[in-house]
Computed example of a mutant assay.
Amino acid sequence: MLKRVNLEHILFLDIETVPQQKNYKDLDDTTKQLWELKTQYQRKDEFTPEEFYDRAGIWAEFGKIICISVGYFKIQGDIRNFRTTSFYGDEVTVLKEFKTLLETHFNNTHHLLCAHNGKEFDFPYIARRMIINSIDIPFKLNLFGKKPWEVPHLDTLELWKFGDYKTFTSLKLMAHVLGVPSPKDDIDGSQVRDVYYKENDIDRIITYCEKDTVTVAQIFLRLRNEPLLPEEEILSV
């Protein structure tokens, strides 16, 4: 079935998120209380709410998006290119620019979005942050009333499960077992907060996010049993 999908109809993506505030002490009292309630199961007695706040970027209610990287195939005859670009900076700007891309270039019924664990994280996170920021959700992210087979989303994690819902396979592990060059040669997700708030190095985060996007595309190619992208076929635009 995957080989029937036109590669040029897929927008591959990855997002990077951080806590809404640099420090826990910057939260108002109500948000602090809600954060404590939201995370009490995950924290148990091991961490205080303040100690756990560096993980706030995981939840759309307490985090924000600082980068969305996308990638898409352009194929002309025997020439295949994978082009990446990123939206970064102020969250509202990031979300609006991403929405514009969807509505102008990936707005047909045959267009699909693809991410690793996208159905559990990337897609709902983007939609929630759009609502929080008073941005209308684009058609590709609005699932209301859609039947399962009408949802325009692909998820490489879901494709790898083959119906097995008992386990989670990270992007790094899946890339390793499939022989895809590892994208984790600089930072990992747990370091994004510090790189953003302490080092103020958004360029480093963009590079990391784009590498993950390329890896998702590479994994998708492997799932189709097709050759991987060599470096010369990957372009940043």
Rank of each mutant, 00 (worst) to 15 (best):
P138H: 11
E210T: 01
I187Y: 00
F87C: 04
V216M: 06
Y53I: 01
G189H: 10
L223A: 01
E150N: 12
Y165C: 07
I137T: 15
M1C: 03
E120F: 09
R80M: 07
E232T: 11
I75F: 06
L171Q: 10
Q42M: 14
I15E: 05
L178I: 03
Q191E: 15
L171V: 09
S170A: 03
E120I: 07
T48E: 06
T100I: 11
T167E: 13
E120D: 09
F52S: 06
D122W: 02
L235I: 14
F82Q: 06
Y196C: 05
G118A: 07
F144I: 14
N23F: 14
Y88R: 08
I187N: 00
W35E: 08
Y24S: 09
N23A: 12
V214C: 03
Y208S: 07
R224H: 00
T31H: 00
E233G: 00
W160F: 15
A115P: 01
N225H: 04
V177Y: 15
E210P: 01
L141R: 03
Q33Y: 07
F220L: 04
V195W: 10
T84L: 13
V180Y: 10
K96M: 14
F106T: 01
T84F: 01
G63A: 08
P124H: 10
T207M: 04
K147Q: 15
H116R: 04
T169G: 08
E91V: 05
L112M: 13
E46H: 12
E232G: 10
E199D: 15
T104A: 03
F139L: 12
D90C: 07
E199W: 08
V195P: 11
F47K: 12
V5Y: 12
D136G: 09
T167W: 08
D164E: 10
P227G: 04
L101S: 01
L171F: 05
N142R: 09
D201A: 11
